[in-house]
Design a protein around this nucleic acid. Structure first.
Length: 993
RNA sequence: GGGUGCUUAGCUCAGCUGGUAGAGCGUCGCCUUUACACGGCGAAUGUCACAGGUUCGAGUCCUGUAGCACCCACCA
């Protein structure tokens, strides 16, 4: 056998006592990768029917493309969360036997990456502009080579089962070719154009931005009321004394130098007479007209608006309506240009603002200044205040692309999960604006457009093609220069689902995996990315890029705050996995802050929250936590306490593995023939064996449903509950006696077979969420349960049909649990949980008696009983603490162990509770409308409940009476029998009926 | 201005197509029981934001109110 694990398999007895994820996880991943388990492989026949989707050709496949992280970045909590979900899906479908591809890759992230490298250069005292473009781009590539491996390493630690051989990068030759092809084709279709327009301009980065890259937030500013002197009317002397000036209200006084009009509302009586006259623009002396436009709200400010078409989007529109000239007063870096009066030229915009106000004030042209809250637009990367700025840019005309993209979601060809995100999508798509795709950066895909000396544009797939076009036009070779701009990062990202699969070539991968099955993403990039992929996919592939979009929430810190460097609340997923000492954590959080003064506060908060740093939790615990977090909520609070709980869950799994392996390897050692024989024949399954199989089947169903619904929280809780509360708490405890060497051979064989197959199946069921620990245990377990295969990664996904529901067994074990819990309740509340006590049963029905016969020994074992005795008909019970299970009454003789007073108090509480339930049930059944209208099933259920409450009522009353009588006697049993006196007390109590 | 969510146990959150509330953590009590003290057993805790409505019945559906988030948008 070529099992790569065989060398490392230790005998189960040598399984370490506790689970140490750090020691096994990296090795396991290295083996997976070396064995190439993550490459798509031919679909296995006999695919699990649950969610497999065979194509027309009959082959079943599954594909997810990763949302490409920034190549020079590191993965944060959100990535780790997202990767966990994609990996769980990928592993699930791979195990189902589908041909499965999780396509990995990274994004060049134009602005973000360029900024990082520029900052590095600054550290060396070099400005970008001091380098040539080629030299700078060289630097970025070098940085990419240097840091580009980080993400790969992180993803491996997370267990991400991507096909590394297919890793792509948006600036790869192949993808770059796709970008050019897409640009040229859109241009050919007339959907890309170049135009001079007002754009969002970042004066720090010196580039245009798309609307989406501008974030507006409310900030405190001022509203300046400025006086613009009226130009006296030629004729004059109309009788009414005209005012000497108009007051305009503005939040941006520095742009007044570019004013080309003042607007008032046409219906505003105050100013109606002035429409058509002029004001003299202060500081410049220019005369500008007073115009009327409905846009002006008479109630705001003074009712007069200065119009600056070159520096405001609204004014630009008004300017167009009224044919106003555009006067640009800013240089690209937002300093005043030569349009400004000489004294102001070259001043940065906010300094200019102060100067202008000073000068106006000196001329008594500032009427007043009032505080004013306004929305300030800032670049999402630079944080700089964005200027509306007049430049030549490239645009995608999106209206034509948006239509089919809207239709695709309307018709369900693309389905958002949860569905309400489609509303967000529609809202944006229906109001979509043309997309500015050119950026004045150096890092990115250079726009495939060339210009001749007359500025004629040649869009072409190559410089040669462009030259050819120019030659055709001019009839001779002319010198061309390529456009300096690069494309918005999201342009190449929009092609990702098909460019990574080989487009524009018709590759087999493209044919097989496009459209992909699901896109897993956060709602924050629905517009940036999801919408654009749908548009581009339909435009170039004539097919949607994915069938479903699973939109998950955003990971926040334990307080609900967004994790950010400046808040100092970032938790690195790798630190959760490996742990980190406090000093290292502090250093990490305070290094490289944009605002260094925040460091002290961050340090204080970090010390408080993690006084001892972060302990190691392992990948599986982290992944399981992510699964639990994957509710439909949009804010997901990441709390380390949960990871810690899941670390314990991993340990629990480890421990039960040690138990199971111990039990099963004993079987192998001791009697291989017998084991083989019993495996062949149908084992004598006990009720517990049938029950746990039944429960496993239900769990498989629950997990399948949850995964199909992208409800990983529900999958996680079903798995957690089955593992801990059913398998460990009950089944393992129940089968312990049967696994003892002295137990009956048949029963032992059945218990072993069940334990082995259930546990092995559970490991496969857990594997997509907890890949490492399940592989580690499975490698040890598989040989013992005669399961073949080299890795759990390629083992088949469990089928619920193999573990059918067994109502009979469920009822049987339900009864057992009821009786055990009843007894434990008494003992637990009396603080004698570990004392072995006798149990008496009254009112036992025939079926109770039969079950008792079958499970008596088990009951004694589970509830720690000395004996179980059924009271004869009419036999007077001794004073006892009691519990009622269905029709059965459980009695634990008080006999010096239990004080009547505490039992009385306990009964009192039960009576109270029962009385409430009873009253409610009676009231309900007393209403004729209920009996008439409710489904018969519900009525019957309610009747049964009522009967149960009534039985309890009488039972409890009887017990109360008896215990009360005993309490009043006030004698034996007053004291707890402990130590040496216990025997005597018990004896005397037993003697006193 | 338009839109979308959220409000359930001390905390963080589940609760599917309506049948009368659950989990984890935390809290309290008992327990070294031979897989696990990273554990076992038991316990306590909720006028499901508020007000109406539909219904035999509402945490669950409808309307409104309040508070809190977020997204989009050009009010100077």
């Amino acid at each position: 056998m070529s099992n790569p694990y065989n060398q490392s398999v230790m005998p189960p007895s040598e399984m370490p006592k506790t689970y140490s994820p750090g020691e096994i996880e990296p090795h396991i991943y290295a083996r997976w990768e070396a064995a190439d388990y993550f490459a798509p492989r031919a679909a296995r026949t006999g695919v699990s029917p649950a969610t497999a989707e065979p194509t027309e050709a009959g082959e079943s496949h599954y594909c997810i493309v990763i949302p490409p992280p920034n190549v020079t970045g590191t993965l944060h909590m959100g990535h780790a969360f997202q990767d966990t979900i994609m990996d769980a899906l990928t592993r699930n479908h791979r195990m189902r036997g589908q041909r499965t591809l999780w396509q990995p890759g990274t994004d060049h992230a134009g602005i973000a990456t360029q900024m990082v490298v520029e900052r590095q250069l600054e550290g060396e005292g070099i400005r970008r502009t001091q380098l040539t473009r080629e030299a700078f781009v060289e630097r970025v590539w070098a940085w990419k080579e240097h840091s580009g491996g980080t993400i790969g390493r992180q993803m491996r630690r997370l267990g991400a089962s991507v096909d590394w051989s297919r890793e792509r990068f948006t600036m790869d030759a192949g993808l770059s070719r796709a970008v050019v092809e897409a640009f040229v084709r859109l241009h050919e279709r007339g959907l890309i154009y170049r135009g001079k327009r007002l754009v969002n301009w970042d004066p720090k980065l010196l580039t245009a931005l798309s609307d989406l890259e501008v974030l507006s937030s409310e900030e405190q500013g001022s509203l300046w009321h400025l006086r613009y002197p009226l130009v006296p009317e030629g004729g004059n002397g109309k009788g009414v004394a005209a005012p000497e000036y108009l007051v305009v209200a503005t939040t941006r006084p520095e742009t007044m130098l570019g004013d080309t009009a003042v607007a008032v509302n046409p219906h505003d009586e105050r100013y109606r007479a002035l429409i058509g006259r002029h004001v003299r623009l202060p500081l410049t002396g220019r005369e500008i007209p007073i115009i009327a436009d409905d846009y002006v709200d008479p109630a705001f400010g003074s009712g007069c608006v200065k119009i600056t078409p070159a520096h405001d989007f609204n004014d630009y529109a008004i300017g167009r309506r009224h044919n106003l000239p555009l006067i640009n007063v800013f240089a690209p870096d937002a300093r005043l240009n030569d349009e400004a009066p000489e004294a102001l030229r070259g001043l940065p915009r906010f300094t200019a603002r102060e100067r202008i106000i000073e000068q106006l004030a000196a001329q008594e042209l500032v009427e007043r200044i009032e505080p004013h809250k306004l929305m300030i637009p800032r670049g999402d990367r630079s944080g700089e205040v964005i200027e509306p700025y007049l430049t030549d840019q490239w645009y995608v005309s999106v209206a034509e692309l948006a239509g089919p993209a809207i239709a695709a979601v309307e018709s369900g060809r693309v389905r958002f999960v949860p569905d309400n995100w489609s509303k967000t999508y529609f809202q944006w798509m229906h109001n979509i604006q043309d997309w500015c795709i050119s950026r004045q950066l150096w890092w990115g895909h250079r726009i495939p457009a060339w210009y001749d000396d007359a500025n004629n544009i040649y869009v072409a797939r190559s410089a040669e093609d462009a030259s050819a076009q120019a030659r055709a036009r001019h009839g001779r070779d002319v010198p061309l220069r390529q456009d300096d701009d690069v494309l918005d990062t999201w342009f190449s990202a929009g092609l990702w689902p098909f460019s990574t699969l080989g487009w524009p070539d018709a590759t087999p991968e493209l044919a097989t995996f496009y459209p992909t099955d699901v896109l897993v993403t956060g709602f924050d990039i629905i517009f940036f990315w999801v919408a654009r992929m749908i548009m581009m996919g339909l435009a170039f592939m004539d097919e949607v890029p994915f069938r479903e979009v699973y939109v998950h929430g955003l990971i926040r810190d334990a307080e609900g705050q967004k994790m950010s460097k400046s808040k100092g609340n970032v938790i690195d997923p790798i630190d959760v996995i490996d742990g980190i000492e406090l000093p290292a954590l502090l250093a990490k959080r305070t290094a490289g802050l944009m605002q260094p003064h925040l460091a002290a506060g961050i340090e204080r908060a970090t010390r408080k929250q993690f006084p001892n740093g972060i302990p190691a939790h392992g990948t599986d615990a982290l992944r399981f936590t992510f699964a639990q977090l994957a509710t439909q909520s949009r804010d997901l609070r990441f709390d380390l306490a949960r990871v810690d709980a899941n670390r314990k869950f991993c340990n629990k799994l480890w421990q039960v593995a040690r138990f199971a392996l111990g039990a099963l390897s004993a079987a192998v050692d001791e009697a291989p023939q017998a084991a083989a024989a019993s495996a062949a024949a149908t084992p004598m399954y006990s009720a517990a064996d049938r029950w746990i199989r039944s429960r496993l089947g239900a769990t498989i169903e629950a997990v399948d449903q949850a995964v199909a619904d992208y409800r990983f929280d529900m999958a996680a809780s079903a798995l957690y509950e089955f593992t801990w509360n059913e398998l460990c708490d009950w089944y393992v405890e129940i089968v312990k006696p049967a696994l003892r060497p002295e137990a009956q051979a048949d029963a032992r064989a059945a218990a072993r077979a069940t334990l082995g197959s259930v546990f092995e199946t559970l490991l496969r069921l857990l594997h997509p969420l907890m890949p490492f620990i399940t592989e580690e245990i499975w490698q040890r377990l598989a040989p013992l349960v005669r399961v073949t295969g080299n890795t759990i990664t390629l083992a088949p996904w469990p089928r619920a049909a193999d573990f059918p529901r067994d109502a009979d067994a469920d009822a049987e074990i339900g009864w057992l649990r009821g009786v055990v819990e009843g007894a434990r309740q008494i003992k637990g509340e009396m603080d004698i949980a570990m004392r072995r006590v006798p149990l008496l049963l009254a009112d036992a029905s025939q079926s109770d008696l039969e079950r008792l016969r079958r499970h008596g020994a088990l009951l004694s074992h589970l509830a720690a009983l000395t004996e179980i005795r059924v009271l004869a008909q009419g036999e007077a019970p001794p004073p006892a603490a009691s519990a009622i299970v269905g029709e059965l009454t459980l009695l634990v003789p008080m006999a010096g162990l239990i004080e009547p007073a505490s039992e009385l108090a306990r009964l009192e509480k039960l009576v109270q509770k029962n009385r409430q339930e009873l009253a409610r049930a009676r009231a309900k059944l007393g209403k004729q409308e209920f009996v008439d209208n409710a489904p018969g099933e519900v009525v019957a259920q309610e009747r049964a409940r009522l009967a149960d409450f009534e039985r309890r009522e009488t039972g409890l009353a009887r017990q109360m009476q008896q215990v009360r009588a005993l309490a009043q006697q006030g004698e034996p049993g007053e004291r707890r029998g402990g130590g040496g006196g216990g025997g005597a007390t018990r004896a005397s109590a037993e003697g006193a009926p």
